[in-house]
Structures are given as C-alpha cells and as structure tokens.
Design a protein around this nucleic acid. Structure first.
Lengths: 146, 146
DNA sequence: GCTGAAAATAGACTTGC
DNA sequence: GCAAGTCTATTTTCAGC
C-alpha cells in the first residue's frame, strides 16, 4: 500500500469522523483527492466501515471472558461457528490451531449470565468449554501498526 | 440506559459516520435533539470515539495470534502491561484469571515476524509465553448486544 | 429536554489540468 | 490522479417552549 493511503487509513482509524477537509490538510492533498482515495480504500475493502467505539461497562456488560471450545465429537463436520453465529454475547469467534478448535470472546453483565451463556454454547454447538475470565483490560482494539 | 440512547448507540456502532439528520429520522427526534444526546453519550464515556474498521489482511497483517503470558518471577511486581504498551503488534492486552496472567492479541505479517515478536515480548516483560495461532476468524468485533 | 431556524462547514459533483 | 469551483447537505449554535 502507498504511503499516502497508509497515512489516510491511520488517520481514519484514530478518528473515524474526521472530515475530508481535515484529512486533506493533514496529508497535503485537496479535499477531492482524499475523498477519491478514501472511496477507493472502501471499495478495495481496506476500510470495511466505520463504527462508534462503545465502553462495554457503560452499557452494562462489565464481564469479559475468553471461552475455548472443542467439539465432543471431533469427527463430526465442523459447523460450530455457524451454530453460534446468532448468540449476541459472542463478540468474536476465531478458529485456532491447538488443543481447542475455537476461541470465543464474550461479554456479559454478571457471572450468572456467563453461566447461562456457557450452558447455551455447550448445547447449541455440542462442545466442551474452558473459560478464562478477564480481570481488567489495560488496552484493547488498538489500531494496526501499518 | 434509556431506550432512545440505546437506539442511538446501536445505530452509531453499526455506522459511525451516520449523520445527525439520519439519526433523527431513525429515532423520531429532531437533528439538534440527537446531536445533544450524542454529545452527552460522548461526555459520559459511553461512546469513547469513532474509528474506521480496517481489514488486517488488506494492510499486510494476515497472521493473528493469542499469546498467553506468565511471569518468570511471580513474586515480582506486575508491570507487564506497561512494559508491553509500546509494542505496536499487540492489539489488545487483557489481565486474566487462570494459569496465565495476561492474554495478548497480536497481528503480524509472517510466521517469522511472530517468532521475533515472541522473543521481544519475553525479554521485554520477563515472561514465558504460550501462543495460539488463529487459522480463520468467522466473525470479530461484533457490536455489543445492548 | 425538545423544536425549529439561521449561520457556518463540510460534502458531493463537475470540469479542466 | 489532482485542483478548483459550484451546489447541496450537514453540522452547530441559539432563542423559545
């Protein structure tokens, strides 16, 4: 990727609502030039979208956990991700190499909610789980180092 | 949190660049009313900011991994998060309950880069590591279920 | 806390380099 | 691929309820 695009992406990751005017000032381009580049970055899929960053605690989800899952029957076709796709507490689902098949990142309100969530995941996907509770998060969702 | 605020947050998480005009249409409020509410949500820290969502593969970081770390000397004061704060490959750092002290999420370009990163983390923070490589990511960074 | 309107800004689009 | 200019939409502020 080009230096100019790299710079634009970095600026938009830091502030997704930055105006094209300011992006132009920061990069030395005209408004229409950055606008054009941003649109190309969006079309190429480099920029997938824009989102407000929400504090999970502030919206009542203070408890974060990682759940490693492994299927009861390892020979069965693996449709675990699909089976869990509609569980809203699951923020991320990664297929991984290692003892377990997936790592899930979940957010819930209370330990009780985590207990129910684990039961739901086990029965929905036919998996055993190993849960690691997050105590605190020094940092998270830092921008990629382009 | 109030229903109207919940709705606004949900809309802004889905599209961080949505205009106040459109937010007003979607919620039935006037432009200035939503604007006011958004500002209060920002001030209260419910909305921490806005960011462009970037495809890590498209910016040359196709390899994601989780690294669990535990200090060589568990009796030493724990400044691991601080010591690792300036390592740009680390996207997230969670203090966790369990066998290890922290779970790091990292993104790198190649297996070789991961090898160097692990060495750097071990020497910087004085920790042993256990690495789980991500094979694929069915979904990630889904909005919190308000 | 919401509305509605006015003024300031920024966005979208076109044309020419 | 970029700059300049025009037209439209949005942001922002404020008086009034």
């Amino acid at each position: 990727m080009e230096e100019l695009d790299r710079q634009i992406v970095e600026l938009l990751v830091a502030d997704g609502r930055m105006s094209y005017t300011d992006l132009g000032r920061a990069t030395g381009l005209s408004t229409s030039a950055v606008h054009q580049r941003v649109r190309r970055l969006e079309q190429r899929g480099v920029i997938r979208g824009y989102a407000a960053i929400v504090d999970p605690e502030a919206v009542g989800l203070p408890l974060t956990a990682f759940i490693s899952v492994a299927p009861f029957d390892p020979s069965a076709p693996d449709d675990i991700a699909d089976r869990l796709a509609d569980v809203p507490e699951i923020e991320a689902c990664h297929s991984v190499a290692g003892e377990e098949n997936y790592i899930l990142k979940v957010r819930v309100a209370t330990p009780g909610a985590l207990e129910h969530l684990l039961a739901r995941i086990r029965s929905l996907a036919g998996v055993s789980t190993r849960t690691t509770v997050v105590l605190s998060t020094p940092y998270e969702a830092r921008p990629p180092h382009l």
